[in-house]
Amino acid sequence: MNKMKTDGFFQKKRQKQLIFSLIVVIIPIIQFCIFYIGVNFNSILMAFQKYEINEQTNLGKYQFNGLKNFRRMFFQLKYENDLPWALKNSIIAFLVNIGVGTTLALIFSLYIFKGMVGSKTFRAILFAPSILSSIVTVTMYKNFVETAIPEIFNLQYGLLGNPDTRFGALLFFMIWVSFGTQILIYSGAMNTIDPSVIEAAKLDGASPLREFLSIILPLIYPTVTTFLVTNIAGLLTNQMNLFAFYANGADPELRTMGYYLFRQTNTASLAEYPLLATYGVALTLIAAPITLLGKKVLESVGPKTE
């Protein structure tokens, strides 16, 4: 009898907990269903649709269009100059991000981790772009490279105004604004390293470079991998802050795939969405395996902690 009472009590408690848990997660789940699954499903569906207008009722609706959007996409890839450019720029941005951005972020993080002279100020300076609104940062940067630099070096055009330097100036900005988050995470990861490990390496006569390569980097490698994989996944969606600089008017030779799609969506009519959705699907089909492969490679080739 007592056992039954106890069982009933626990059953009721479990039910209450279940209800509570359901209430807590139901809204996020609904949101996830609508704004992630629903949106993406609709986007995939749209890649196989066209927009038809009924000229009697003046109403439009999406209708099945087979694979015609894909055919048109391949046609555009063949004939439009913008797309190869955008693809090339996306790859350059990715390589610079990985090669220069991540390397410098690791060096700066080490500098901060080691508490070298002015490291706190340095951290604040590098983190500032992440706190400020991107429009504010872009405006400051524009004024610096367009007004101050030409004044100092007596140039005819600023770095953004000069066609020869503007892509470089944009890459520099992209790297600069990306430091904040990376440094915060890398230096945070470095701070979790047991000081006795580093102390022991020092006692064994390890140079600072050896200490970094053999102790610190292997220990924070999972964090670095996460960033690198995120970068690979963003290869075709990175818009290099172009919208903040140029709104819809960035020149073709500056565009990345991410900006190209964002801009097109921004200026398109409803009838043009299906083609853009087709690009979205195609880019996902390219980016997903690359990301998975990149993850696998990074996990297998990186420095080991043993």
């Binding site: 927009y51 207008i53 100059n81 913008d82 819809n248 008017g249 960035a250 020149d251 073709p252 030779e253 097109q264 200026t267 398109a268 009519s269 009838a271 043009e272």
Partner: peptide, 19 residues
Amino acid sequence: YKNYSTFDLEQIFATSYGT
């Protein structure tokens, strides 16, 4: 309508040399 962004007035001089 179906090529709204292509025929946009801002695109009238756009070439591979510059938008």
